[in-house]
Nucleic acid binder design. Structure first.
Length: 491
RNA sequence: GCCCCCAUCGUCUAGCGGCCUAGGACACCGGCCUUUCACGCCGGCAGCACGGGUUCGAAUCCCGUUGGGGGCGCCA
């Protein structure tokens, strides 16, 4: 007779965010690892909204988190299950713990507890509930209740011994019970807290693997204690992921800047690139590949290759990866999903032939839609076109800038209107000019900067009239500048 | 203050006792290509925090130190 192996059980995981803000990269990575694990093992990925803190939870965040998850391509199989709709269940569980003596009524007010904790900290003592209401007699409880004191329910943690569990990524994690104090499971307003709801739901939903951030490592002991108190000693498998940190190596938070996933979407990052990058934060496939499709990630992912050290979120590498995904797109795809949105941002509409010319020119030079929009900003109408002094100075630092512009003007005035025919590099060479030295003057005249999208494509898109207008304007500015310089600084 | 976790190039990582004079990627620096800038290609710089053990042999195992992080909420 063979025993059923644990691995044959179907995997059930959940992503359980608190709807108190937007989904950030840390949460997204947690969601992704849960999703990858579920898909890899053919399991079930559940979305659970931990909105037990009614005051801080907001409907709009619940919607926002779901939309962002879908944008990333992380579809859930069950849910969303809102904990706010299951309060009866948690309250019943708390009642049971109360009758069994595993929890007790606490009449300390929130302020009192906080003050005592602050005092403890000030005096160098360990903060934590001091157990004041732990062993109240029925008479004392009645008296407190009679005074109209608020009543919360606390879980009684063991006084001695060691709490220990196995974590897939961290190994055995053990801590003395004496360092874990009694904690509140029902607020004085009658609503349940995280530990309770979390423990109850993981049992009810038959969660097999809990994959979450390392910031929850210590709380696991408490959840496990509750679970045992319910009579479910057989715990799920835990995997605590390394934290994603900011430049200061601290846990990522609002002050680290644009970390809302919506921001990445708005700036024109591809969900595939973001997912790919996020997957590599705390995990790596065994063959060293870095660019992996979602299917490839699913196939390669498993918890045993998750590492333990905190990871810094590197925007530069994300930019590179997004660029890789952009370059891998077909021209049609690129034009539709990158170029056109970028043109919309600068409020410019172009005919199809111009779109085609720009697609080829832009593809290898772009990291995001935003970035492309910036590179296309020279397409604004003439009265809004500007050349910064710094860019101008850099470009005309080359000798013979007037000559370069004159060649360009003469050529553009009479050439055939195709990108190829616009090319006057041979004429520059014939005049004894080095194209690499000469061209920046053209770039600054046409695009307002000395570096940018290829010049002849830019001119083509701009059209003959506007191209000539810009070249001539630059030529005039050059003359004006020379006049001024000539009057004051004889050489 | 107490508890817990972590420690390989600037960054993300490979490495799970000999294959490591430590591999890859991003970034950076050269060169080639080239109408600028990019892309691409070639090359380079750069790391096992420190100190003790264990072992014939340690980036890999153990202990300590240092450093970093997380937690200690009627937040999750």
């Amino acid at each position: 007779m063979t025993e059923p192996a644990r691995t044959t059980e179907s995997v059930r995981v959940r992503f359980s965010p608190a709807p108190t803000g937007f989904l950030h990269v840390g949460g997204a990575r947690t969601a992704l690892f849960n999703w990858l694990f579920a898909r890899h093992h053919g399991g079930t990925f559940i979305l659970r909204i931990e909105d037990t803190d009614v005051a801080r939870s907001r409907e709009e965040w619940i919607t926002g988190i779901q939309q962002t998850l879908l944008w990333l391509g992380l579809r859930w199989d069950e849910g969303p299950v809102l904990q706010s709709g299951r309060f009866d269940r948690y309250l019943a569980a708390a009642e049971r713990l109360l009758t069994e003596g595993k929890a007790y009524e606490c009449f300390c007010t929130e302020d009192e507890v906080r003050e005592r904790n602050e005092a403890a900290r000030r005096e160098g003592r360990t903060p934590g509930y001091d157990g004041r209401c732990r062993d109240l007699t029925p008479e004392q409880r009645a008296a407190f209740a009679g005074e109209g004191r608020p009543r919360s329910i606390r879980f009684r943690t063991p006084d001695e011994g060691v709490s220990c569990f196995d974590d897939v990524v961290r190994g055995e994690v053990a801590v003395e019970w004496s360092t874990i104090h009694d904690f509140v499971i029902i607020r004085s307003d009658g609503t349940p807290l995280f530990f309770l709801a979390n423990a109850v739901d993981d049992v009810d939903m038959e969660i097999t693997h809990v994959i979450r951030g390392e910031d929850l490592l210590d709380s696991t002991h408490r959840v496990l204690a509750l679970r045992a108190a319910f009579g479910h000693p057989d715990p799920p498998v835990y995997a605590h992921l390394p934290l994603i940190v900011g430049a200061d190596r601290a846990k990522l938070s609002k002050r680290h800047g644009a970390i809302a996933l919506e921001d990445f979407r708005d700036r024109g990052y591809l969900p595939e690139a973001l997912v790919n990058y996020l997957a590599l934060l705390g995990w790596a496939p065994d063959d060293g590949r870095e660019i992996l499709t979602q299917d490839e990630l699913v196939a390669a992912f498993d918890l045993d290759r998750v590492n333990r050290s905190p990871a810094f979120f590197d925007y530069q590498k994300l930019d590179w990866m997004n660029g890789e995904y952009l370059r891998a797109m077909s021209d049609d795809q690129f034009a539709a999903s990158v170029l056109r949105p970028a043109l919309e941002r600068v409020d410019v509409t172009l005919p199809d032939d111009a779109i085609a010319a720009l697609t080829a020119a832009a593809k290898p030079r772009v990291t995001t839609v935003n970035d492309l929009a910036d590179q296309l900003s020279f397409l604004v109408d003439e009265k809004n076109f500007e050349i910064s002094d710094a860019e101008w100075a850099r470009a005309v630092a080359t000798q013979r800038a007037q000559e370069v512009l004159d060649i360009a003007i003469a050529h553009v005035e009479r050439c055939e209107w195709t990108v190829e025919a616009l090319n006057f590099v041979t004429e520059l060479k014939d005049a004894g000019l080095k194209p690499a030295k000469a061209m920046p003057a053209i770039y600054v005249a046409i695009e307002g900067r000395s570096r940018g999208l290829p010049a002849f494509e830019a001119m083509y898109v701009l059209g003959r009239e506007r191209t000539l207008a810009r070249l001539r304007a630059a030529r005039r500015r050059l003359d004006d500048g020379l006049d001024q310089a000539g009057s004051g600084t004889p050489d």
